[in-house]
């Protein structure tokens, strides 16, 4: 499996191809959102909603072989696309890897300019929640 950094570099390269064209970049993000695996309906609960996002985001996890699988959904396609990028980078990793991860691809692809400051805050809230899950799993694994 490629490292977190490898995947981030891949994403940076993909976005570099799109260049400064904001419209194509957004279409691309929405397309990525469309490819997100279906979110389990039984997990669509109030407690799985991430606070601090302007659009609705549901996030939950499964543990497989001491690795975290993230499952997420949103009511907006752009947000779904953003989550799919985070899942691509972080899902299937150990809690330690996730906690250590420096997600520099977000700045490097100029996400702030693409999605605006309000959504950037939402993205930070998503990352925080993903890391909180990792912290909880790590604590559980260390017991």
């Amino acid at each position: 499996m490629s490292s977190i950094q490898d995947i981030q570099d891949q994403i940076i390269e993909e976005f570099a191809i799109l260049g400064d064209d904001k419209e194509s970049t957004i279409y691309y993000i929405m397309e990525l959102g469309g490819q997100l695996p279906k979110f389990p309906e039984e997990e669509r609960l109030e407690e799985n909603i991430i606070k601090g996002c302007q659009s609705k985001v549901w996030l939950t996890t499964r543990e497989e072989d001491d690795r975290i699988q993230y499952l997420a959904d949103s009511n907006t396609d752009i947000t779904k696309g953003l989550i799919s990028l985070l899942i691509r980078v972080l899902s299937g990793r150990t809690p330690q890897e996730i906690l250590k991860a420096d997600l520099d691809f977000i700045d490097k692809i100029g996400m702030g300019n693409i999605i605006g400051s309000q959504r950037s805050n939402g993205l930070s809230a998503m990352i925080k929640q993903m890391k909180l899950y990792a912290l909880a799993y790590q604590a559980k694994q260390n017991v």
Binding site: E23, I26, M30, Q54, S55, D77, I78, G116
Partner: peptide, 8 residues
């Protein structure tokens, strides 16, 4: 979603 339409 209206937000997606607005961003586009």
């Amino acid at each position: 979603h209206p937000f997606d339409v607005g961003v586009m």
